[in-house]
Amino acid sequence: MLVQTVDYCANDAPARLIASLRETGFAVLVRHPLPVWLIDGIYRDWLAFFDGEAKADYRFCPEKQDGWFPPSVSETARGRSVRDLKEFYHVYPWGRIPAGLRRDALAYHGTATALAAELLGWIEDALPAEVAAGLSEPLSGMIKASPNTLLRVLRYPPLAGDEPPGALRAAEHEDINLITLLPAASAPGLEVRDRQGRWHAVPCASGALVINVGDMLQEATAGWLPSTPHRVVNPVGAEAAQSRISLPLFLHPRSEVVLSARHTAGSYLDERLRELGVRN
């Protein structure tokens, strides 16, 4: 499985990104404009937050979906019976954010959202005429003034050895949104499944930015771009005693955007959140 590494500054970057997304649903972007120092600081500061007690004051709102999701209510991937081994915080510009973490989180949310919009524009420009004609509106229009783009700060706690049988840090799943931007996590573990069912590790070098297609984009393009299963496997040895932090940005359309004859973005998101067990 060849997930291409694409130089953001190269003249052929858009074409190579689209080729990798078309083939695998994933690409790795390097020399991108997201500041590594900001990402590293967010990892450090949010790890301290997850290790503290103040997070209990920010327990998530089931309707708004902002705030801290403890391990006891973590997601259960579709088709699985045990929850993922993780906790996470949902950052929206309009939502609750701890005061000491707010500035950097919102700075990153804005910068990453702008890059995600640019990459979505690359995709929009590459769509075949028949695919573009099937959209309810251009991809760039779907995200204008959207309040739904989500920055998730994820913490996978150290493994204690008493985890439920079969539990993974993140079981096999696809993302819900249009595209995801994921800077290199604090430790390896991300794997992508190819069309033959084999799993492949995704590079985790500092400065790498993983881009992947979500289910909403697959739905809107009638499968022209594939949303590919991926997972985060449990570490072994000394790494099992360490937390893992990651920072996906999920680019979402406005809720009323029509994705297909079956779904608006709002109805699709609601259906998936219920499947994941984080909305009643």
Score class of each variant (00 low, 15 high):
residue 183 P to R: 04
residue 183 P to G: 10
residue 184 A to Q: 06
residue 184 A to L: 08
residue 185 A to P: 11
residue 185 A to K: 01
residue 185 A to I: 02
residue 186 S to R: 03
residue 190 L to C: 12
residue 192 V to G: 01
residue 194 D to M: 06
residue 196 Q to S: 14
residue 197 G to H: 09
residue 197 G to L: 06
residue 198 R to Q: 14
residue 198 R to T: 07
residue 199 W to S: 14
residue 200 H to I: 12
residue 200 H to C: 11
residue 201 A to R: 15
residue 204 C to N: 15
residue 205 A to C: 14
residue 206 S to M: 05
residue 207 G to V: 12
residue 207 G to M: 12
residue 208 A to N: 15
residue 209 L to G: 04
residue 209 L to V: 07
residue 210 V to F: 02
residue 210 V to K: 00
residue 210 V to C: 13
residue 211 I to C: 14
residue 212 N to M: 06
residue 212 N to K: 10
residue 212 N to I: 07
residue 214 G to R: 08
residue 214 G to E: 08
residue 215 D to R: 05
residue 216 M to I: 02
residue 218 Q to K: 12
residue 220 A to Q: 06
residue 220 A to V: 09
residue 221 T to C: 11
residue 222 A to F: 02
residue 222 A to Y: 08
residue 222 A to R: 15
residue 223 G to D: 13
residue 225 L to P: 01
residue 225 L to H: 05
residue 226 P to M: 07
residue 228 T to E: 04
residue 228 T to F: 04
residue 229 P to T: 11
residue 229 P to C: 09
residue 232 V to Y: 04
residue 233 V to W: 01
residue 234 N to T: 06
residue 234 N to W: 01
residue 234 N to D: 08
residue 235 P to F: 09
residue 235 P to A: 10
residue 236 V to P: 00
residue 240 A to M: 06
residue 241 A to H: 09
residue 241 A to L: 13
residue 241 A to S: 14
residue 242 Q to R: 15
residue 243 S to R: 08
residue 244 R to T: 08
residue 244 R to Y: 10
residue 245 I to G: 02
residue 247 L to K: 09
residue 247 L to M: 11
residue 248 P to A: 10
residue 249 L to A: 04
residue 250 F to V: 05
residue 253 P to G: 05
residue 256 E to M: 00
residue 256 E to T: 05
residue 257 V to E: 03
residue 257 V to P: 01
residue 258 V to P: 01
residue 258 V to H: 03
residue 260 S to V: 13
residue 260 S to W: 08
residue 261 A to D: 15
residue 262 R to P: 01
residue 263 H to Q: 10
residue 266 G to M: 11
residue 266 G to S: 04
residue 267 S to A: 12
residue 267 S to D: 06
residue 269 L to S: 05
residue 269 L to I: 14
residue 269 L to N: 07
residue 269 L to W: 00
residue 272 R to S: 01
residue 272 R to L: 05
residue 273 L to Y: 12
residue 273 L to S: 03
residue 274 R to F: 00
residue 274 R to A: 05
residue 274 R to S: 03
